[in-house]
Design a binder for these strands. Structure first.
Length: 890
RNA sequence: GGGCGCGUAGCUUAGCGGUAGAGCACUACCUCGACACGGUAGGGGUCACAGGUUCAAUCCCUGUCGCGCCCACCA
């Protein structure tokens, strides 16, 4: 006997262990079934499960379980990402707490510092101890990934793939080394890519500086800047070639204040006559625009910052060693003192911040490795244009194109220690040897130099996303030609959030197409962000974070999963409130109790039961409802409408199975007809079983538990066959008849409540104005109606005396309310109903009277309106005669 | 500066050419042998606003107002 309520914790642990031990999560390359592949977006090893993870992995698990039940050979490839910067920061912080500093941060070697090899070993140590957290948490979510195939982006195999991709792209000229401005993070001491820079609006100032024209005493050119400290690195002033104000100054020089350097005034279209003074200072080494201007005019590039963004020795002594902020104050003060500040204005500007470090990014001139992304993007754009990969919802296609068509070179080198070290070696003269390993590089160097030469390996590591971009094939064994690679690439669906379309999706497309010659996945399903119930982004600082594990502990995993699925309407953010989870916890309890009813009433599966052969109409009706539900779930999932599938299931279980079918079944089971009892018990058990199947992808634990404990399921539900029916299973007559009974019972109940009849009162009822169909239906189900509507009897020969009259399609039911009915109130109620029906009929009549409508609307719509008018007319007639009958009473 | 999305019941929202649905909250009644994490019934919506297209608009188009996000080097 089941407990009174569902106790999730115990059941979750039990079934998860059994599933995993049973090998049900594993793919089977030998299978004859069609494969179904989902590549799990590898969470950061440093991570712990947040709501975004819970959403994305729930949706993936729903798809995976669904396809597994449909008989596909499912591979859900799991793993974690080494998350270069994030992990490096975590371990650095831990070491710092012990007073240990990395030598890479400029510290000198001593007892308190640690070198590269030792640090990397520390990170692996950390990974062994703490890196499994997120995977354990994923298991608590019920994720049925193929854990035996778990991969890590720093695994030997995956590292090999990274090296090969680097070497191949380099050989093809698609990876190259270049000196240009990069986004330099002065806190982390590394270059970062454009995508890792976050533009923030900040309030600042616009300083208008006077630069004295050389050789023209007392004449100045005014330039405006938001960063006065960079003037120390100026190497020109630019004006627009057509700007009349400055024409005579072009190719003259200015004497750079504070520095004394002579710098030219150049003509360049970059200077906008309409902005500021129309003249702009040029600092090629510290501004992306100025860099271009500098290149065009062959200006020297003076780097004034060190790696910490402090001023270096290229500035006058007074400023050396100052931070950017200190330097700004000093420069402004000194210019002020020299009378060289024309004016200062408040100014709103966008500043670049490092998304991980949170400090202002400095454009800095360095040598880095770049990927020619524009070239790789071409086939990736074409693949989406031709529909080989499609985005769901479709609107993300535009986002993808917009970015891909304007893609910039991808800076892939990072000045960190944790990550894939760049497979490049340098000779004494700077010659570069890119190779799979040191031996290969040495051999190449020997050929190049004609003798063995000592090489130095590139210190940098690669952007984490470089290895993630290979995930769809590197996890399958590439570059080896494995069976898995042949079978599971390309994947079917990629499920992920919009925030990593550029970081990850686009790059997998590029790499997959380049190295595999085929897109990595056919469909990209993009879901939205999880926000709090008010629509705010969850963040630690706001303190509005909802921890999925706490929710799981409190309400059960099934409730959390179902909530996320039910709220995951395509293209909409998920606004999560605990009350929703509570509601779906209640739903799980409702299902539990329905199963308990089955258990108590002997509703067990009967091998002889055939849903197409039911003799009881209520059972035929129930079969039809299940068939319809399965159809709706299939369709919703085919379109990734998880919310629609969840709502259909909720209503099917609660609104149909519990509210009506079990109530229909009760009198039969308690009755005397032995055949009917046998059939109904079996039918109820069958229907429950079907519901458990349909619900399993969303609520795996409770369904598995009930399947095994109540329905004696021998095959675990996780690998049971997904329901699929002959459409002829639906008995339309039975459906119509029982739907009518539902309507009748609802109407009677409503009237009873409206008339304040005590719920417990059993009343006799009679039938009037009934057509043959209604009479037949009541002959079949009269007792049922009596039971559900609390009537003592319902027989022909209606009398309106002391009765309320309930009008339904095809009949009027007179409820004898001796003592309860108030004739005036009943008259008012009927009049109101008549008005309502008349109003509706009037509306339809006007529509049908419109010749344009009849001529232009589709025939079925016109027909439908005619039918509705007829129904309204019939109801009107019945209600009118009901009112008429009342006239004979006071 | 470009691009995308969203304004539907008190809250969260589904629907997206032809009767506006749901969950929570709310009201009344109900210990009826599965379930009070429950049952039965009920109230509550000029579908942001203004034009247009159409026989017909919450749904399509245009504009206005209000929110949000993404991309972008404007001094």
């Amino acid at each position: 006997m089941l407990e009174k309520t569902f106790n999730p914790a115990e059941v979750e642990a039990k079934h998860y262990a059994r599933w995993e031990q049973g090998g049900y999560f594993a793919c089977n390359p030998d299978s004859k079934a069609a494969p179904f592949t989902i590549m799990m977006p590898p969470p950061n090893v440093t991570g712990s499960l947040h709501m975004g993870h819970a959403l994305t992995f729930t949706l993936q698990d729903v798809l995976v379980r669904y396809e597994r039940m449909r008989g596909r050979d499912v591979l859900w490839q799991p793993g974690t990402d080494h998350a270069g910067i994030a992990t490096q920061m975590v371990v650095e912080r831990q070491l710092a707490e012990k007073g240990i500093v990395l030598q890479r941060l400029g510290a000198r070697a001593n007892l308190q510092t640690i070198g590269r090899a030792a640090f990397v070993e520390k990170v692996w140590e950390w990974k062994r101890e703490s890196g499994g957290t997120i995977i354990r948490q994923l298991r608590r979510l019920g994720a049925s990934a193929d854990w035996a195939r778990e991969r890590f982006t720093m695994d030997e195999g995956l590292s090999q793939a990274v090296r090969k991709v680097f070497v191949d792209l380099h050989r093809q000229g698609l990876i190259y080394r270049d000196q240009r401005l990069v986004n330099w993070d002065p806190k982390l001491h590394t270059a970062i890519s454009d995508l890792e820079v976050e533009a923030r609006e900040v309030k600042g100032h616009l300083w208008h500086l006077r630069y004295p024209i050389d050789g023209e005493e007392g004449r100045y050119i005014v330039v405006a800047t938001t960063r006065p400290e960079t003037m120390l690195g100026d190497t020109a002033v630019a004006v627009h070639p057509d700007d009349a104000r400055y024409k005579d100054l072009i190719s003259k020089n200015v004497r750079l204040p504070l520095v004394g350097r002579l710098i030219p005034i150049v003509a360049d279209e970059h200077a906008d006559p309409a902005t500021g003074s129309g003249a702009v200072k040029i600092t090629p080494a510290h501004d992306f625009n100025d860099f271009e201007v500098g290149r065009r005019h062959g200006l020297s590039m003076i780097n004034i910052f060190d790696a910490d963004a402090r001023l270096n020795d290229n500035v006058p002594t007074a400023y050396r060693g100052l931070s950017r902020e200190e330097a700004r104050k000093r420069v402004v003060a000194d210019l002020e003192a020299a009378g060289l500040i024309d004016k200062v204005e408040s100014h709103q500007l966008t500043m670049p911040y490092g998304d991980r470090s949170g400090v202002v990014i400095e454009p800095w001139l360095t040598d880095q490795w770049y990927v020619n992304a524009a070239k790789l993007a071409e086939p990736a754009i074409a693949a989406v244009e031709t529909g080989r990969t499609r985005f769901v919802p479709e609107q993300w296609t535009a986002t993808y194109f917009q970015w891909m068509r304007n893609i910039q070179p991808w800076c892939i080198s990072r000045q960190l220690w944790w990550g894939h070290q760049v497979p490049a070696w340098y000779g004494p003269d700077g010659e570069i040897f890119v190779a799979m390993d040191e031996a290969e590089a040495a051999a190449a160097a020997a050929r190049h130099y004609g003798k063995a030469t000592v090489l130095k390996r590139d210190e940098d590591v690669l952007d984490t996303w470089f290895s993630s971009a290979l995930w769809p094939f590197s996890t399958l064994g590439w570059p080896e030609k494995t069976r898995e690679l042949a079978r599971y690439y390309p994947g079917d669906v990629l499920v992920t959030g919009f925030d990593i379309i550029f970081f990850w999706v686009a790059r997998m497309m590029m790499m997959g197409l380049h190295f595999m010659g085929e897109v990595p996945f056919g469909t990209v399903y993009i879901h939205a962000l999880v926000r709090d119930e008010f629509g705010h982004k969850m963040s630690k600082s706001k303190g509005n974070i909802i921890d999925p594990l706490e929710l799981i502990d409190k309400y059960g995993c099934d409730a959390v999963r179902f909530t996320l699925a039910a709220l995951a309407a395509p293209g909409r953010d998920v606004k999560l409130a605990a009350s929703r989870v509570e509601g779906y916890r209640n739903f799980a309890t409702k299902l539990w109790n329905a199963a308990r009813f089955c258990q108590v009433n002997g509703c067990l599966p009967d091998p002889a039961f055939d849903p197409s052969r039911c003799r009881q109409q209520v059972n035929r009706w129930a079969v039809g409802r299940i068939v319809d539900l399965a159809r709706r779930v299939d369709q919703a999932l085919a379109e990734f409408k998880f919310n629609e599938a969840a709502h259909a299931l909720y209503h099917g279980v609660w609104g149909e199975f519990c509210d009506w079918y079990l109530e229909f079944a009760k009198p039969i089971i308690a009755g005397a007809d032995a055949d009917a009892i046998v059939e109904t018990r079996a039918a109820v058990a069958w229907a429950l079983g079907q519901l458990l199947h349909l619900l399993h992808p969303f609520m795996p634990f409770i369904t598995e538990e009930l399947w095994q404990q109540v329905l004696d399921g021998k095959t675990p539900l996780i690998v049971a066959a997904w329901p699929s029916y002959d459409p002829n299973l639906t008995d339309r007559a039975a459906t119509a008849e029982l739907d009518w009974i539902v309507q009748l019972v609802s109407e009677i109940r409503a009237v009873r409540a409206e008339m304040n009849v005590p719920p417990a009162a059993q009343l006799p009822a009679t039938l009037g104005d009934a057509g043959p169909e209604a009479e037949a239906r009541l002959a079949n189900h009269g007792e049922l109606v009596c039971r559900l509507a609390r009537l003592t009897e319902i027989k022909p020969g209606g009398s309106a005396a002391g009765a309320v009259q309930v009008v339904v399609e095809g009949a009027t039911v007179m409820l004898s309310l001796a003592g309860h009915v108030d004739v005036d109130k009943e008259r008012a109620r009927l009049s109101k109903e008549i008005d309502r029906v008349a109003g509706e009929a009037g509306k339809i009549e006007r529509k049908l009277a419109n010749s344009d409508f009849v001529a232009k609307a589709p025939p079925e719509v016109v027909q439908d309106q005619r039918e509705r008018l007829a129904e309204a007319g019939a109801a009107h007639a019945k209600l009118s005669s009901a009112l008429q009958r009342l006239a004979s009473f006071r």
